[in-house]
Design a protein around this nucleic acid. Structure first.
Lengths: 175, 175
DNA sequence: CCAGTTTCGATACGCTTGTATCGGATACTA
DNA sequence: TAGTATCCGATACAAGCGTATCGAAACTGG
């Protein structure tokens, strides 16, 4: 056989390149050629590592799910803040996958699995599945609003703090 | 001059076609040829109506913003439910634009304007800007989770009802 | 030391995309 | 009614995409 490069480290480098490009231009701006160039490998290497583009994206989606879950530990407050105010690049990748999964059935199951993990973690922390769902949804919404520039990170932090203190979404029915 | 077709109605038909296609395949699956075919006009007609693809998408974004805002009237509860549980097609179009705006600077301002309108409406209804932001973010998050199949519409409705009753996000810090 | 097999990077290919261009049809103007 | 300026739909075109293919290189088994 020819010299065999380290397959796993190569997959890791390629996945990192996918994240960088998805952060810069969105998921649709990720082309195999650009991924290869950014990762410092040939186009053929990307093909051989992942077979098809969809498989590469699916692998990247699983990876970002793992990273998000890994950082969302500790108390419910800490976890919520980590979820709502993530790394900007990571958040953009996540949002790109959410939008894509809404229309591409082959990406949706992996994303649903990540959300199920996330929701389960918050449910264990809070002891209430509905509250867990509310918190995850709120965090996702805040993250999206920061990304598009509707809120600053500080404003999102303020909203989250008020919600965590139980003062923001109380008694909305009275309004 | 040659016979002049009704420009506004043509723009409307083309915009409807953009919505249909964005709902089916996402915003990146919207091609000028498919839009033309779906609208029942020629490719050249689409070009002359909007000049470039970006302008067509920007027009569609403004239009969906108007529709969302138009349906979100009444009390805060009604508005929140209309926002969190919109027409499925409309929601997918909205999510697609959010994801796109996060990486394309020319689309972001129009989306920010729509969010500013929405937030202003809730602020008037609630008398509290932070609560308004929380509610809009929660609604957006719930909508996204329904679209990707993580929550059923009924589950999202349950979360929203608990939040509107002030029982879901209270005292998360104790968890 | 050589044959064989496997993986490497490069290139070729067919397809789709957004945009530009082009003759023909049309409705004002004089 | 003839001229003309405008707008129509069709087609042409260059670029970029994902994927398939190919010769060369390299490591292993005999």
């Amino acid at each position: 056989m020819p010299r065999e490069v380290d397959r796993d480290s190569r997959r890791g480098r390629i996945t990192d390149a996918v994240f960088l490009l998805a952060d810069e231009r969105g998921l649709e701006g990720v082309t195999l050629r650009d991924v290869a160039a950014r990762a410092g490998v040939s186009l053929g290497a990307v093909q051989r590592c992942f077979g098809t583009k969809d498989e590469m994206l699916k692998f990247a989606l699983d990876e970002v799910g793992r990273r998000v879950l890994a950082r969302a530990g500790g108390t419910a407050d800490e976890a919520a803040r980590a979820l709502a105010l993530p790394e900007r690049a990571e958040a953009r990748v996540w949002l790109a996958f959410v939008a894509q999964a809404a229309v591409s059935p082959n990406l949706a199951p992996a994303l649903r699995a990540s959300y199920a993990d996330l929701e389960g973690m918050f449910e264990r922390l809070l002891g209430d599945r509905v509250r867990a769902r509310a918190l995850v949804a709120l965090a996702d919404g805040l993250t999206a609003h920061v990304l598009i520039g509707h809120l600053t990170p500080e404003q999102a932090r303020e909203v989250l703090d008020r919600c965590l203190a139980g003062q923001a979404l109380d008694h909305l029915g009275a309004g």
